[in-house]
């Protein structure tokens, strides 16, 4: 491939300096089309500020953020290119959900019928004529996603879209975003919910204290941090520890009576146990955990600045 694809998001040396706080500090990363990219960072890491600069709502102190090579404010009819969900509570309390969407349609020159289609897409049709103040948090998130989908955009930017959704809603959103990415769209999602991100994202961009910590495919980021571990449960802990010591595996007993073994694959551990006639009740390879990796990577950089 030559050059960035037309729907890539490119953040280039982006910086935002508030009076005393450098909210975003020389940040560069690329979000590729056709994949879901998780945008992760502790509270106050600068995620929202970065997304707002990308969308032309906040002016950067330095650097640029472009979508398909162009700044958001330079896009003609931007919501036909980029759909954004920024705040769940961003609609007039006294306006119905459908009128909220129609208002956007009118400003963007889209037909009113798009609002009904978008409501159908997010499952809000039964609540179309209800006022926004009667919406639950989950319904508000769905309305936000409906608003983002009005222009059938190639690029989606979502800030904490899973907040307030119930498990069914989270699963619905995961399926929706994965399907949209599979159609070749660019999907950038910020979240705190790391378990959810591990299920959803193909790539991650990890941010802390305004700086880029790590970017890449989820497996690579997980693989780069520490060796894989295997959880083992046995009534003969001492014998197994001896046997594993002979194959140079490291054993760390856990409070729940299991032990975490590193330095050996599950098969090698099972073999060593068999050879030593040790009874095993559990032998589980622990998959890399995004939460652990995230906490290691951002250690000491989280917190209020």
């Amino acid at each position: 491939m030559t050059g960035p694809a037309t729907d890539d998001i490119v953040v280039d040396h982006l910086t935002k300096q508030y009076k005393k706080l450098r909210a975003v500090d020389d940040l560069s990363f690329t979000v590729r089309s056709g994949r879901v990219t998780g945008f992760l960072g502790p509270n106050g890491a600068g995620k929202t500020t970065t997304l707002r600069m990308l969308l032309g709502l906040v002016t950067p102190t330095a650097g640029t953020a472009t979508i398909g090579g162009r700044k958001y404010v330079e896009l003609h009819d931007p919501i036909r290119h980029v759909g954004a969900v920024l705040e769940a509570s961003s609609a007039h309390r006294g306006r119905t959900g459908r009128n909220h969407l129609r208002m956007i349609c009118r400003a963007a020159g889209l037909p009113d019928s798009r609002s009904d289609e978008a409501l159908e897409l997010v499952g809000l049709t039964p609540a179309a004529k209800r006022k926004f103040k009667g919406y639950s948090l989950g319904m508000r998130q769905r309305l936000g996603i409906a608003a983002a989908m009005l222009g059938d955009p190639r690029v989606l930017v979502l800030d904490e879209p899973a907040n307030g959704l119930d498990p069914e809603g989270i699963r619905w959103m995961r399926d929706l975003l994965k399907a949209l990415a599979a159609e070749g769209r660019t999907v950038l999602v910020s979240s705190h919910l790391l378990g959810e991100m591990q299920l959803l994202a193909d790539d991650v961009v990890i941010l802390a204290a305004g700086k880029l910590i790590r970017q890449g495919p989820v497996e690579d980021v997980l693989g780069s941090m520490g060796a894989a571990q295997v959880r083992v449960r046995t009534p003969q802990a001492a014998e197994l520890t001896d046997a594993l010591g002979k194959i140079n595996a490291t054993v760390s007993p856990q409070p729940d009576g299991t032990m975490l073994v590193s330095g050996a694959e599950a098969a090698a551990i099972g073999h060593a146990a068999f050879a030593a006639s040790v009874e095993l009740h559990e032998l589980t390879p622990e998959r890399g955990d995004l939460e652990q990796v995230f906490l290691q990577l951002t250690a000491g950089m989280a917190g209020i600045r």
């Binding site: 969308l55 920024l86 509570s89 961003s90 609609a91 400003a107």
Partner: peptide, 18 residues
């Protein structure tokens, strides 16, 4: 002022960044 009171300014300026 209602755009800021009801936090709809974000939506408005996303639709029309100029």
């Amino acid at each position: 002022t209602s755009e800021f009171f009801h936090l709809t300014a974000t939506t408005t300026f996303l639709v029309t960044p100029r």
